[in-house]
Amino acid sequence: MAARTRAANRYYSGPPSDHFDGTLFFNPDGRPPGRFTDLLRWQLSGGRSKWPTAFPSPYPQAKPEQRIKGKALRLTMVGHASLLIQTGGLNILTDPVWSERASPFAFAGPKRVNAPGIAFSDLPPIDLVLVSHNHYDHLDLATLKRLKESHGPRVLTPLGNDAIINRAAPGMRLSVHDWGDRLDVGAAAIHIEPTHHWSARGGRDRRMALWAGFVIEAPGGKVYFAGDTGFHGGANYRQMAEKHGGFRLAILPIGAYEPRWFMAPQHQNPEEAVQGMKLCNAAQAAGCHWGTFQLTDEPIEEPAQKLAEALAAEGILPERFRAMRPGEIWDVPQT
C-alpha cells in the first residue's frame, strides 16, 4: 500500500486522515476543484474583463524598519498575497512573489500590473516565510531561492510542498506541517490551520500537496493569514473563532472570484470575506489577493468596491477592513 501511495503521489506519503485519503488531500465535507471540462467552459465563455497593463499603487515602495518590537503590529503590502508582518521582533513574509509572472513560464501567464510594494533589496532580515500552498501565485520558487541566498529564513508550509521547494532550493530550512500543528518561533507560536482550497503545479499533481492558513500567536495578539480559500459556509472561520477566541488582525483574500459558478468553492468574494471577518472575531482585517495578477474575470477595481459596499451593508467602519495596495503600511491598532 505504501509503495502504491508513493507511486501515485509524487510529493507526500503518509497515513490517511480526515483530509487525506492515502493518496490525495481533500476538503472535509467540501467541494473539489472543477473538472477540465468546467475549466474549458469558463475559458471559452468570453466573460473576462480587460485589465490595464499597468495599475500603479498610490503608495511609494516602502522601506521597512529592521524590527518592530513588543506588542506593536505593522503590516506592509507587497502585492497579491505577499505581505510583510512585523511584530514581537519577528519579520514574517506570507506567500512571497517578487517574480514578474505567476506562472511556470517567464514568457507567458499572469503578469503583475504593479511593482512589489517593497523592493527586494529593501527587505529587513526575514526570519520566517509562510507558504500556504503550491499554486504559482503563492509558491514562487525564484523568490524562495533569492530569500534563501540573502536571508536564510525558515519556511513553514503544509505537507508535500517541501518536495517542490527542495528541488529548487536544496538546503532551505523547511518546516513541514499538517493541519492542527503548532511551531514555536521566538516569542511567537505559529498554528497551521485548515482552509477550503486545492493544489496543483500542473495537470498531473492535483491535490498531491496540502493547502493551509496560519495563525501567528504573538505578544501583541493573534494574526490570522487565511492564504487562499473558499468561504465553505463559514465553517473554517467558525472553527478559528472556537479554537483561538478572536484575532487582532485577519488577512483575508477578496479577489479572484468570478465567475461564481466555477470559483465559489475555492475563492471567496468580498461579501464572504466580510462575513469571515465577523465569524472569526477579527477586530481588523486586511484584504489581499487582488489587483496585482489577473487570474479571473472580475474588473481590477471591483474587489475593493465590493468590499466597501459589503462593509457599509454590515455597518462596519471601512478603516477596520482595508483593501491593501502595494507599498501600503498599516500600524494595526491594539484590541
Score class of each variant (00 low, 15 high):
Gly255Ala: 07
Val185Phe: 11
His197Gly: 01
Trp198Tyr: 15
Ala264Tyr: 07
Gln268His: 07
Gly227Asn: 04
Gln268Leu: 15
Ile216Gly: 01
Gly213Cys: 03
Gly255Met: 06
Ala226Asp: 10
Glu258Gly: 00
Glu242Lys: 13
Gly186Cys: 10
Gly245Lys: 08
Gly180Lys: 05
Lys222Leu: 09
Gly230Arg: 10
Ala187Val: 12
His244Asp: 03
Val274Asp: 12
Pro270Ile: 07
Gly186Trp: 08
Gly203Asn: 13
Ile251Lys: 03
Thr195His: 01
Ala188Asp: 08
Asn236Ala: 11
Gly227Arg: 05
Ala218Glu: 10
Pro259Tyr: 03
Arg201Glu: 10
Glu193Ala: 07
Ile254Pro: 04
Arg204Ala: 13
Gly220Tyr: 05
Trp198Ile: 01
Gly234Glu: 08
Gly202Glu: 12
Asp184Lys: 11
Leu183Gln: 06
Asp228Gln: 15
His244Glu: 06
Lys222Glu: 00
Ile192Cys: 11
Ala273His: 11
His232Glu: 14
Gly227His: 04
Pro219Gln: 05
Pro219Met: 05
Glu242Tyr: 00
Leu183Thr: 09
Gly255Cys: 06
Gly203Gln: 13
Asp184Ser: 12
Ile192Gln: 06
Leu249Arg: 06
Ala273Gln: 12
Ala273Ser: 15
Gln268Gly: 11
Gly220Lys: 03
Val274Arg: 09
Ala200Lys: 15
Gly245Met: 08
Ile254Phe: 04
Ile190Cys: 00
Ile216Tyr: 04
Ala241Gln: 14
Ala209Glu: 01
Ser199His: 02
Met263Phe: 09
Glu242Leu: 07
Pro219Cys: 06
Ile190Glu: 00
Ala256Phe: 10
Lys222Pro: 02
Ala209Tyr: 01
Tyr237Lys: 06
Gly221Met: 08
Tyr237Val: 05
Asn269Lys: 13
Asp184Cys: 01
Gly186Arg: 10
Gly221Val: 07
Pro194Lys: 00
Ala235Lys: 14
Ala250His: 07
Ala235Ile: 14
Trp261Thr: 04
Asn236Ile: 08
Ala189Tyr: 00
